[in-house]
């Protein structure tokens, strides 16, 4: 007389393992679209790079552009500002040490994200103790190279991928 438990205990049977494995594959394949659909859709990704005309930005001025729905700061730096930025390359109080050269392609053009690395507010231009930017939310000070110098932000304003298509056009992203 067989018991029902005998059947349940035939676990090591290859057929059961093969079926279980195939079933797991099916379940995984079914779940993936449900997760991936939350990733940015194609129309959102289409706007993932922008081309910016920088010829309109005069020396000593900054402009803000929207890239991936977030602000990007582009500053046309004066010679004095560039010198100041380089001078602080090895300052002892750099919270996130980085030289100015590591953050730019052409010294007169500073191109970086305008989102404070603390909790995401937008820093104010030409304010703060370091002649750069100041974030009013929690008091982070960034210098003329966008480096965090004082305050709670943990890292410098991020520099994203960009290329000069020509002297007056930058492609961001």
């Amino acid at each position: 007389m067989t018991t029902h438990d005998d059947v349940v205990e035939e676990r090591r049977n290859f057929l059961y393992i093969a079926t279980g494995a195939a079933g797991a594959v099916a379940a995984g394949a079914a779940v993936w679209p449900l997760i991936d659909q939350m990733n940015p859709s194609k129309d959102v990704l289409a706007l993932s790079s922008i081309e910016v005309d920088i010829s309109v930005i005069a020396e000593g001025e900054s402009a803000v552009f929207l890239w991936r729905k977030n602000p990007v700061f582009i500053r046309h730096r004066t010679a004095e500002e560039i010198a100041r930025a380089i001078a602080d390359d090895n300052a002892e109080d750099l919270i996130d040490p980085q030289t100015d050269a590591e953050r730019i392609q052409k010294p007169e053009w500073l191109v970086m994200s305008g989102v404070c690395t603390h909790f995401g507010c937008i820093p104010l231009d030409q304010q703060g103790d370091f002649g750069g930017w100041f974030c009013p939310c929690h008091g982070s000070h960034y210098d003329i190279s966008g480096r965090i110098r004082k305050g709670p932000a943990p890292s410098n304003l991020p520099v994203m991928d960009y290329v000069f298509l020509d002297d007056s056009t930058i492609k961001i992203g």
Binding site: T2, D6, N13, L15
Partner: peptide, 10 residues
């Protein structure tokens, strides 16, 4: 075949 095997004995 899994189903068949499960039911085989009864």
């Amino acid at each position: 075949f899994t189903n068949k095997r499960v039911w085989r004995k009864i």
